[in-house]
Simulated assay, not measured.
Amino acid sequence: MNGVYGKRVVPRDVRLVRGDSERLGGWWRKRDLSTGEITPVDLSAWSGRIELRSPDGDELWYVRSCDEMTDDGHAVANIPPSAFAGDVWLQRRSGQWKCVVTSPDGSTVRTVGWGCWVLSD
């Protein structure tokens, strides 16, 4: 089998702290099956976002655009300290998260990071 495929994205569980700044995102690399070489995907022209969802994944509770899209495959959103200050976050203590990137023409959408999150004080 010849070709290039994306490196498998593994889940990463994260702990978020109310009142702290946070960084959340993902990393996309590809492996050439004929050579075994692993190279990052240049995401500098792409857009990205992180999503925090309910534990069952049905409700979207928070979304933020990625501030950093790098040529070495990273998509990172900087979450401000005020993000979880509202009273609604007293009941929203855990769930699922993911980082999604979209190509400049909008034709390619990939999940480059995902897992579970927990919010603590």
Score class of each variant (00 low, 15 high):
residue 22 E to T: 10
residue 34 S to H: 02
residue 22 E to W: 06
residue 34 S to N: 10
residue 103 S to H: 08
residue 21 S to H: 07
residue 7 K to P: 02
residue 106 G to V: 05
residue 106 G to N: 05
residue 27 W to Y: 14
residue 90 L to K: 12
residue 20 D to Q: 09
residue 53 R to N: 03
residue 1 M to F: 05
residue 5 Y to M: 08
residue 88 V to E: 15
residue 62 Y to N: 04
residue 73 G to W: 09
residue 66 C to S: 13
residue 54 S to E: 01
residue 47 S to W: 00
residue 82 S to Y: 04
residue 26 G to E: 00
residue 94 S to T: 09
residue 5 Y to A: 02
residue 53 R to I: 01
residue 11 P to V: 10
residue 33 L to M: 14
residue 86 G to A: 15
residue 79 I to F: 00
residue 21 S to N: 09
residue 39 T to E: 15
residue 5 Y to K: 13
residue 41 V to E: 15
residue 51 E to W: 00
residue 121 D to A: 11
residue 28 W to E: 11
residue 78 N to R: 08
residue 53 R to V: 02
residue 58 D to H: 08
residue 61 W to K: 04
residue 30 K to I: 07
residue 8 R to H: 08
residue 120 S to V: 14
residue 78 N to K: 07
residue 52 L to E: 01
residue 77 A to I: 04
residue 61 W to S: 07
residue 115 G to E: 03
residue 67 D to I: 04
residue 37 E to Q: 15
residue 53 R to E: 03
residue 19 G to K: 04
residue 35 T to S: 15
residue 92 R to N: 10
residue 87 D to S: 12
residue 65 S to I: 00
residue 63 V to K: 08
residue 121 D to W: 02
residue 87 D to C: 03
residue 26 G to R: 00
residue 47 S to F: 00
residue 103 S to G: 11
residue 69 M to T: 11
residue 19 G to Q: 07
residue 36 G to P: 02
residue 112 V to C: 06
residue 90 L to S: 13
residue 9 V to W: 05
residue 49 R to T: 05
residue 54 S to T: 10
residue 22 E to L: 05
residue 77 A to S: 12
residue 110 R to A: 11
residue 98 K to W: 04
residue 11 P to S: 14
residue 75 A to V: 05
residue 46 W to S: 01
residue 41 V to M: 12
residue 18 R to V: 10
residue 15 R to M: 13
residue 39 T to N: 13
residue 83 A to V: 10
residue 51 E to F: 01
residue 78 N to W: 00
residue 97 W to D: 12
residue 62 Y to L: 10
residue 49 R to K: 11
residue 9 V to T: 14
residue 91 Q to L: 10
residue 26 G to C: 00
residue 100 V to A: 05
residue 4 V to G: 01
residue 1 M to V: 09
residue 64 R to A: 14
residue 106 G to S: 05
residue 97 W to H: 09
residue 68 E to F: 13
residue 32 D to L: 03
residue 77 A to Q: 06
residue 61 W to Q: 11
residue 49 R to A: 13
residue 103 S to A: 13
residue 3 G to C: 08
residue 11 P to R: 12
residue 55 P to M: 07
residue 23 R to K: 13
residue 23 R to V: 12
residue 25 G to H: 01
residue 20 D to K: 07
residue 120 S to W: 03
residue 16 L to P: 14
residue 107 S to R: 10
residue 14 V to Y: 02
residue 2 N to A: 12
residue 16 L to V: 10
residue 94 S to K: 05
residue 44 S to L: 04
residue 86 G to M: 10
residue 48 G to T: 11
residue 95 G to Q: 04
residue 67 D to F: 04
residue 60 L to F: 01
residue 111 T to A: 08
residue 19 G to Y: 05
residue 71 D to N: 14
residue 94 S to V: 04
residue 107 S to E: 15
residue 54 S to N: 02
residue 89 W to S: 06
residue 39 T to A: 13
residue 110 R to S: 11
residue 42 D to A: 03
residue 93 R to T: 15
residue 5 Y to S: 04
residue 80 P to T: 02
residue 113 G to N: 03
residue 89 W to T: 07
residue 10 V to Q: 12
residue 106 G to E: 09
residue 93 R to G: 13
residue 57 G to A: 02
residue 93 R to L: 15
residue 21 S to L: 03
residue 92 R to D: 07
residue 118 V to Y: 06
